[in-house]
Nucleic acid binder design. Structure first.
Lengths: 165, 165
DNA sequence: ATGTATTTTCAATTATTATTGAAAATATTG
DNA sequence: CAATATTTTCAATAATAATTGAAAATACAT
């Protein structure tokens, strides 16, 4: 397979993978494109390479910036903004986890806490127990993600794997 | 808040949460309904409680069954099929992880392996390095999920948390 | 300040995904 | 084996989400 072909394929694969996780295809594809690009790209470049509109490119670039997955980079003598991706994939994973935690786990925890305020009764006992069960799970995922964030990659996995062998 | 109201709210919340993770709203809602239901429910019950069509109910019940998140249950003297949900949320988490691993991580690993077959050249070096970086990440997620699956809840989190304090 | 390049916004459109519901298939009963 | 209950399928429809593109806003240079 040729290099350009392989990159194209990767962009496709990453896009599909994204949609399965609630990330829209274009966003995942812009991300993939920047990951496999050796030099920073501007909006025009991205529009061309992915055949998407300016609006679409702009919106997803912004969103990826919010997720801390890509950075602005200026090129001397050019007034356009260029973008490059974080290429350390462990770092990428950590940032995605961090962001989803903030955007989803935390709000979910609040919702669950609200639900426990249901009026007490014989019938509500098992409901509250279930909610508490979920709270426990969520707070565990939460600590796990916190741990993940702080842990150095090598040390973390080394210890995990040793723990259970 | 009243119990029925709280259950309704939970179903809503679980549904929204699902959509953010690539699971369709109805499926998440059927799941939620069964989680908070004290007795097993049949298709009719589910249709009514969620105001969804027979086809929709049937399809999502089947899908939840494939994910091992709900079970068929028969009620003596009734010829309809009834369903109940696994209520141990740790178990639920493990099954979701197991299923997503099988459906997504494994195919992704195959794709990545393919991409490494790109023809060697000066330009392809960094591409292959990136792919290998991703492979490493994926195989780590893979072991982590494997570990998760076998680990007892308490032991697992106890050890994790001790590790990093 | 004026003109030009660049970025952003957002209503309209298109594409995708989910849902319906009636018909077909299957299972169960007497 | 009918008759009936139940489940499944799937083409049509509806709902949702993504995308476009041109206009507005902003940033920059002279």
């Amino acid at each position: 397979m040729e290099l350009e072909q392989a990159k194209q394929q990767f962009i496709q694969t990453w896009g599909n993978f994204g949609t399965q996780w609630g990330i829209n295809r274009s966003m995942a594809q812009v991300h993939a494109l920047l990951i496999v690009s050796d030099s920073p790209l501007c909006t025009e470049d991205i529009m061309e390479r992915l055949s998407i509109s300016r609006g679409n490119a702009n919106m997803n670039i912004r969103e990826l910036t919010n997720w801390n997955l890509i950075y602005k980079e200026s090129i001397a003598g050019d007034r356009k903004e260029y973008f490059r991706a974080e290429k350390d994939m462990w770092e990428v994973a950590k940032r995605i986890v961090k962001e989803r935690k903030r955007r989803e786990l935390e709000p979910l925890q609040q919702h669950l806490a609200e639900l426990k305020k249901v009026e007490q009764s014989y019938e509500s006992i098992s409901f509250v127990a279930t909610i508490e069960n979920i709270e426990r799970l969520v707070s565990r995922l939460d600590s796990l993600s916190g741990t993940l964030m702080k842990a150095d990659e090598h040390v973390f996995f080394g210890k995990i794997l040793n723990l259970f062998k």
